[in-house]
Design a protein around this nucleic acid. Structure first.
Lengths: 199, 199
DNA sequence: ATAGAATGTAAGTAAGCACTAACAATTATA
DNA sequence: TATAATTGTTAGTGCTTACTTACATTCTAT
């Protein structure tokens, strides 16, 4: 293992553990001691890689921020049926949210620490989704498949349903409906949305 | 001013300030010194009213938790048109969320501190909304005005749209974002939902 | 007027925090 | 093997925190 690789693997261990603990305990709740211990390194090593806890937090946010998730999906879905397209989009959306659970938690609980930065990440992510889905709706309106409605508001409505479902599920809001099939409830959402937007 | 009144006004000042500061800085970020200063009292007085910061937090949560918001609305809306009913419900929903912004922030950022308690408050609140709206949908299905769909999933879908809009709006607060009129976008949501659920 | 309750002032405690200094041990590469 | 970079160990610093003690002051009710 080269020096650089080792160094960066230590660095990554710190970043990964920091992500986990910031998500679990919050910025103030996760101590540098905790993080070092969790990463299996000495506390001082953490400070050799990151000059302060604050900077470590920034690096965590930058490292695990959302990347474009819909790029390339638009041409793909434009060849599907409307229903299949909506299914594909909600699936991609939910997958992304699922893979970034820790990051979402941090953003929820620490927006007051870095309002601008966290706002930007959150906004860029949602904006891409809304813009993409919105332009898809617009296309479908041009093709006379969908009725006239504000495409962007429609995108907000659709993603809002799915996002709220994700949050509720994360919150264990569906405790009693154990094993409610995600596909099933999403299908119900899509059904409503379909009838609500078709010509 | 009687003793009791004075005592309880001090207590309330503490609770109000604690709500505000817990919301603004988080549980760990809001120090007892801060809260006392904000309430205009001595720090020791805070500890005479609440034996610990932890207990103060519990009292804040209990004091400002959601109360039934839809009780009495059901008979009211059953005499309106479907569209007016949905408008009334989303308005009531948004009003409640608006009046409890601080509490919502606390719940978002401190669920890890009292998972069960916060989950319960959140759940009770949403459950009431979903059950009420769900049974309204059910009634409307019986009257043959609405098509067949899972009433509760429909309620989740509708409230999800509105709730996500509320969160997005809250999040955009500090940046000047294209100011979308709430009534307008809610109307668009309702429009989609209307067509999606009508017979 | 006076007792008793509520509040304030001032000083302090013990613990935990982010962060550092000094030096030894390990590891990678040349 | 020699050298330099990376990590570990240990012991600390100074600051902040929740919370306490002791006593003085103000307010309220009788």
């Amino acid at each position: 293992m080269s020096n650089k690789e080792k160094s960066s693997s230590t660095r990554n261990k710190i970043l990964e553990t920091a992500l986990r603990l910031f998500s679990k305990k919050g910025y103030l709740g996760a101590t540098t001691k905790d993080i070092a211990k969790g990463a299996g390194i000495a506390e001082v090593t953490l400070f050799r890689h990151f000059p302060s806890k604050e900077r470590l937090f920034e690096h965590v946010i930058n490292t695990y921020s959302f990347l474009p998730v819909l790029r390339g999906l638009l041409p793909e879905i434009s060849e599907m049926s409307y229903e299949k397209a909506l299914t594909a989009i909600s699936r991609r959306f939910l997958d992304t949210l699922n893979s970034r659970k820790d990051m979402i938690r941090i953003m929820h609980s620490e927006m007051r620490r870095y309002p601008e930065k966290i706002y930007k990440i959150y906004h860029d992510f949602l904006d891409e989704m809304i813009k993409t889905l919105g332009s898809y709706f617009h296309e479908m309106q041009k093709k006379n498949i969908l009725r006239k409605f504000d495409a962007e508001s429609g995108a907000r409505a659709f993603l809002g349903m799915v996002f709220s479902y994700f949050n509720a599920k994360e919150f264990h809001m569906f405790k009693k409906y154990k094993d409610i099939d995600t596909d099933k409830i999403i299908k119900e959402f899509i059904d409503i949305f379909l009838r609500g937007t078709l010509k």
